[in-house]
Design a protein around this nucleic acid. Structure first.
Lengths: 204, 204
DNA sequence: GGATCTCGGATACCGATAGTATCCGAAACA
DNA sequence: TGTTTCGGATACTATCGGTATCCGAGATCC
């Protein structure tokens, strides 16, 4: 084992770098061209490797895309939490969240990928299982966030936070899907609906 | 031209029958196995034809699926209109609609197909264009229905019927997508959300 | 430090499937 | 009855996900 400082990249390190680079490139391509529209060969070549590199780092296309989505989810969750942790009142936080939604749904390549990949779950029990896991965690985390934010504002939810989370997530997913078809769709419907729901489902 | 009454199937008639049979079979297969999971060869053979028959009746897989979706849409619209035309008060109509939604989202093979096919629009300008046309018509028709139903009930909408239509459609699409992943998801969230929206967006 | 082993990544290949080119035979027509 | 038309069948191509196999550099052992 060379303890040499300049060329000390161990084999595991190099593989990790390869994997990371593949995910990075795959992310760009999946977002740009969609899941079906992106071939593993394109990803590999764009990353400077051959298809063999993909298969020695991932079990296949599905696992690669799952890794890509995980990196995206991490960032998105961060963004939402940041919006709802902004040091203002409830209205300010909702404004921040609405702005985030508007940005994400405005150029909906992300939601389109998300929905397209969910469709492959139909053919792949593994994908289905993994997505259900993530989906449930997301619902639970959202519910918790809603609970906290509503409590912070001194309000009380008349419906379960869980149901509210499901409703808002559904709305976002559906709106993202519609928006990825029709660029003229007005995305602010999300914020308006959210406010209407809040109005009719909370009490002091 | 034989005016014979017993074997008078003209060529055009036979082709129409072939086309109809293909759509019929394709509908079952697409709903059961999804768009990607259904090969044209399977469809053709299951219908008692060869792939050539498909291509001489449709430009390709996309057009076939579009034809399938059109037959489905026709039925679904019929169902929704029936629910909202039921001869009761607003609550009764909403109950009928909620029941319809529960049934359709309960076994969400239809919504799953819808969403999966929407994803192929990303790779196909033709599909994108056709879906946008249908989508806009659907939103317009929904808005009109909402307007009529709310007026029938002697209420007034505080938001535009168009936005309400977009919100409800999004909610349905998103919930259908989520439900097709997670069978444990509570579909009644739709009805509850709809009622909450109605409550907070109407005045006498 | 040289021999051996390991394994990440490259190459060659397979199977499935959407789509194309061509062909055939019966209905339409003169 | 001969000719044309065309719906559907057949044969073929290209693309792509996935598998089997191979190669060479780095890790390991003496």
């Amino acid at each position: 084992m060379s303890v040499d400082s300049e060329r000390s990249t161990t084999r595991a390190e190099r593989q990790a770098q390869t994997r990371e680079r593949l995910v990075e490139v795959a992310r760009d391509l999946f977002l740009a061209d969609g899941y079906a529209g992106t071939s593993l060969d394109k990803v590999a070549v764009a990353a400077g490797f051959s298809k063999g590199a993909v298969y020695s780092n991932f079990s296949g296309k599905e696992e690669l895309c799952m890794a890509v989505l995980d990196t995206i989810h991490e960032e998105q969750i961060e963004g939402v939490v940041a919006a709802f942790t902004a040091d203002t009142d409830l209205d300010g936080r909702i404004d921040a969240f609405a702005a985030w939604v508007r940005e994400k749904l405005g150029k909906p390549r992300w939601t389109a990928l998300e929905v397209e990949f969910a469709a492959v779950a139909r053919q792949s029990p593994w994908v289905a299982g993994e997505l259900v896991k993530r989906h449930r965690m997301l619902v639970a985390a959202s519910a918790e966030l809603i609970d906290r934010v509503v409590a912070d504002a001194g309000l009380r939810l008349d419906i379960s936070a869980h149901k509210a989370a499901v409703a808002l997530l559904s709305l976002g997913i559906g709106l993202g899907a519609m928006r990825s078809l029709d660029a003229d769709l007005d995305v602010d419907v999300f914020a308006e609906t959210m406010r209407a729901l809040l109005r009719s489902s909370t009490s002091a």
